[in-house]
Every structure is written in C-alpha cells, then in structure tokens.
Design a protein around this nucleic acid. Structure first.
Lengths: 195, 195
DNA sequence: TCAGACCCTGACCGATCGGTCAGATGGAAG
DNA sequence: CTTCCATCTGACCGATCGGTCAGGGTCTGA
C-alpha cells in the first residue's frame, strides 16, 4: 500500500474539517477521520501529535488574523477603538465563518482548552474595545451579546455572499453600539435617566 | 447506610446543577454526581432513567416558560409579535440565566439531543417573530445574533440584579431591531439605500 | 547493495463512559 | 414473625475514546 502521494497530511486536514462541521469536534473521533481518509487511525496520529493539534492547525489562519486584530487594537482608545473592533471583528467572523461553523456550538467550550488559552485574553480585550472601555452594564452587555452572537450567526448563514453578510452585520453593530464619545465626560444621557 | 431521608432525588438534582455549572453537562459524569451527593452511581440511575432525563428535569421549568412564550406568540404578527418576542425572550433569558449557565456553551449542542427536539422548532418561530417575519437578511441576521448572544451574555452576568440586566438587554434589543411596520409596504428605507 | 528516512499499519493499552443487575438492607403493613 | 416494597449498592458490562508501539514496506542517496 503506502506512498500514494505524500499529501496525506492535507487529506486528513480536509477530512477533519468536513467531519467537524457535521458532527462537531467532540462528536468526531480519530477513527472517523481515518475512515473518511481511508487510512488507519495510527496514520492520523503519525501526522498530528494529537487530536487537539489537528484542530489547532485547522484554526491557525483564523487565529493569526484574530491576533493581528488584537495588535491593531492596542493603543487605540475611545470611539476609534470601538469602530476598529467592530469592523475588524465582523470582517474576521465573516471571512472565517467556515472555521467557526466547524465548531458547531462548541465554540465557547473549545476555547477553554489549553492550546487556545491566549484566545480568551484576546477576546476579553476585544470585548472591552467594543464596549468603548465603558463600565456601564449596557455597554458591556451589548459588547458581549454581539461578540457571542455574531459568530453564531455567521455559522448559520453559510450560503450568503460575504459582502451581504458583512454589511448586514455592520448595520446591526452600528445600530446596537452607542459611540462611547457621546458620553465620555459623562453628562447624563437618555440611557442613564430611565434606569 | 440507606434511608437517610427520601430527599435523595432532590439532592442529586442539586448536585448535578452545581457540577454542570462548573464542568458542563458533558464534562460531568454520573460518577461525579454520585460522589458529590455521597451515594453510588447506581443510586443516581435509580432515581433518574438516564443522564439525559436528569438534565431534562433540571431544565423543565425553563422549557415550560419557553413553551408558554411560544403559545403567546402564535397568532401575533408584525411589530406586535416582534415586541412580544423581544420582551418575552429577554425576560426568559434573565430569569433562567442560572439554568442557561449550566450548559456552559454546550447550549446549541445540547438542544440537538432528541429530548429537546421540539425546542428547535420553537426557537425557529421565536427567531421569525423577532425578525418581524421579514425575509431581509439584515432582519434575519439581527434576530439570530440576538437570540444566540443574549443567553450567552446572561450566563456571564450572573452577579448583576435581574432588573438591571433586563433593562440593559431591552435597551439593546430596542436599538438593534428595526420595527417591521416601518417597512411593511416596502418603501425604500435608509437601510435599503446604502447597501 | 545497503543504510536510513519516511510513511503507514494492526494490535494493543488504560481510562472512562453510561447503563444493567442481582442482591443486601430496613421500615411498614398484615 | 413474615411479607412486601422502596431504596441503595458493588460488581460488572460493552462500547468508545485518545494514544502508543514495534514492525513492515518503499523510496532515496551513498
């Protein structure tokens, strides 16, 4: 047998992506992946140190872009940071919605794995930026709802053109997020009155 | 041993709730629950047909209220349905955020289990109502983001008073959702122009 | 021709899981 | 005392999981 083409690595990656998208990460065993590729489970583990490493390689591009966004955000403050976070995150979610869909709701859970430990800190900073670094509940909650909801929505709308999805999401974010500058020197706003 | 008090059933339920909230449903084994209660795994399975039944009983109150909301929504259309869906869903999420937190991100995944099959249809109808039964991508996407994001946010803000959380979420929803009546006879709106 | 790197495999491992079952215990009813 | 039933348990089961390992085939380069 052996030595068909040394593309087994990529074939495994592709098979894993396909299966993860249908049955989820946890719901897909190494055996399943091996069967899909047409090789043995041991072969899968020859090309990847373990199951988590497989997932990590699958998510690497998305994570790299997320890290870029985080870098761009450091130093920015106020409405500028807010705007950059919004546009950057929406773009990220839309571009990598395939990868997001892979995780099928295991999203939050998976990020707790040691391999993705730093992601949590990044998303923490992203959330703060999107909230305009405000500590008002409304702003913090809004940021959290968007940050959790947008990836979920992206995973659901896989058959819509990128541009349509992006512009719809930006419309939503623009409506939902109140620019932080309008309340920077904290004068009473309409929000503060009716609480 | 045996026959301490016949409250074992409730003790198991409470222990399961505690553990699910920390380690999640999948991450908690029947063994773990038994250990927490101080009984054998077999005892847990004496009181509950299986692990899923335990979860179902834990979620029963929340599901009942969700079903009520669904009933109230049937027959309503347009902005009335939209408003009712928004208020009802936010209230539901806030009241049962403890139960939601139990699932720790397994939310979407768990609802695929056969015991919760009908929940999917309900949430489908809820989404449609929240979108004002519009088929514009912006509206459908907004509804989805909110429906996915709100529970997630509620699970995170466990230490905030109910009323504060509720009013913050309602403010967000009111901002994010465009009342469907303003575009019913579909005249060009500002949204349509800039896309 | 031979050595060694590379690729692949079947057999196997220990752990864990949800779930079953026959039987022990003990209080209540007759 | 005997019967009955609810409660509880240890031992056990089959399945599945991620992961290891020794070894076999094949290509390459000296």
């Amino acid at each position: 047998m052996a030595r068909a083409v040394p593309e087994t690595h990529d074939e495994i990656l592709a098979a894993a992506a396909r299966l993860f998208a249908v049955t989820g990460y946890r719901g897909t065993s190494l055996q399943d992946i091996a069967r899909e590729v047409g090789c043995s489970k041991a072969t899968v583990l020859y090309h990847f140190a373990n199951k988590e490493a497989l997932l990590a390689e699958l998510m690497a591009p998305a994570i790299a872009v997320l890290k870029d966004l985080d870098d761009q955000l450091t130093g920015l403050t106020g409405a500028v940071a807010q705007q950059a976070a919004a546009v950057g995150f929406v773009d990220l979610a839309v571009r990598f919605r395939g990868e997001i869909a892979l995780l099928r709701g295991e999203f939050t859970e998976l990020l707790c794995q040691p391999a993705f430990a730093h992601i949590q800190q990044i998303s923490e900073r992203l959330r703060a930026a999107l909230a305009g670094h405000s500590d008002r509940p409304v702003d913090r909650i809004t940021a959290l709802v968007l940050l959790a909801g947008i990836p979920e929505a992206c995973a659901d709308f896989v058959d819509i053109p990128d541009d349509d999805l992006r512009s719809a999401l930006l419309t939503l974010v623009r409506r939902a997020v109140e620019p932080v500058d309008t309340l920077m020197p904290h004068p009473p706003t309409t929000e503060d009155k009716d609480s």
